[in-house]
Design a protein around this nucleic acid. Structure first.
Lengths: 196, 196
DNA sequence: CCGGAAGCGGAGTTCCGGTTTCCCTTGTTT
DNA sequence: AAACAAGGGAAACCGGAACTCCGCTTCCGG
């Protein structure tokens, strides 16, 4: 009796191998070309036929979704890790910086993130919920420590990350997004009364 | 001898009329659907045939470019107007706010803006240069008045506007981008030494 | 009011990329 | 090692959307 961890039943050995290859080649190409990446090419780079790709992922969007889900998973891990940081403000800074770094150079995900409210990605909600929980804790801690504006929320966090991402997309390769993030953090980390 | 103001030679009366219609219907549909907007539909809404559209704009991208150029023109005007504001900081705030408002609900331009470094829009450079000049003056004035971080630049301005735009795109309809802009302005308007 | 150039329309062409199909190959099981 | 299923491959298929072509219509100067 297999536990069928997520849904992959007793996949034949070679099949599993191919699946991995497809995912990794998909990640590469979506990273480079965004959603424009072509199924043909993904298959080719994975060294399999198109049919095989479709055996594993019924549709292009399914493949895309799988990668996005992975990324959110990664975010949740990053956040969890960052939460261990002793300094409250640094913890928040770390999540943001590390998350952004994780996405650098992944055009596909950048677009996905910026437009993620438009499409309804399948099983992303779950991962998103975990992320939200952890990040909310981090924010709360930072607020309590007086390290950031006390009206800063998880929603804001999302917006701001989105903004940083847009700079990544807009000026790929230049590290300008760091500047953008820095500006933003600067604003966030100052009590309301000081400005103006 | 005609002066041939931009490039529109002795266009026949009806042709000119159609051109206008195409532009305005194009603007509408690009605003609603983004670059996905279809030439067929644009033609239909303009009440002309597809052939006519292609007579005026050799390619879809050409049409898109024309609209983007118009928008940049508009930005330059907004900036020029804002420059007259007496208060230095308010002038800067005004450009940003008005520009953002101008773009609200124009999905096509939002995307164009976020990705505007990727494609090389034809004659946009000119409009962009004007904008840069005016905005730079506004920023300098604000800096001199001690109203914003003294390392704030036109580049930053672009990034930040892009970020705000991304929220517009991400959460269309919600006015959330105002919050985003507010957060950003807050950060920008505080001297460096205060934060942290 | 005529001639013809400029403009129009929209059906058809072309290209492109996701998806399906179907037959062959390979792994697994007994 | 035979049989059977699971997996693989790639040649069509298919739809959609940008663009072309060419006969017809409209404007406008003489």
């Amino acid at each position: 009796m297999k536990t069928m961890s997520t849904e992959q039943r007793t996949l034949r050995a070679d099949a599993r191998r191919n699946r991995e290859r497809i995912i990794s080649s998909g990640r590469e190409l979506f990273a480079r070309d965004g959603p424009e990446a072509q199924m043909d090419e993904i298959a080719a780079r994975a060294g399999v036929g198109i049919g095989t790709v479709y055996r594993h992922f019924p549709t292009k969007e399914a493949l895309l979704t799988a990668m996005v889900r992975d990324r959110f998973q990664e975010f949740a891990e990053i956040a969890t890790l960052a939460e261990e940081t002793a300094d409250a403000r640094e913890a928040l800074e770390t999540v943001m910086l590390r998350s952004a770094e994780a996405v650098e150079g992944d055009v596909g995900f950048q677009l996905a993130m910026m437009g993620s409210n438009q499409l309804e990605w399948d099983g992303i909600e779950e991962q998103k919920a975990v992320l939200a929980k952890v990040v909310t804790r981090i924010i709360r801690r930072a607020v309590d420590a007086g390290a950031v504006r006390d009206d800063f929320t998880f929603e804001d966090f999302g917006m701001v990350m989105c903004g940083t991402t847009s700079t990544m997309y807009y000026k790929p390769g230049s590290g300008d997004w760091r500047r953008h993030l820095e500006l933003t953090l600067h604003g966030v980390s100052v009590p309301l009364s000081v400005a103006r």
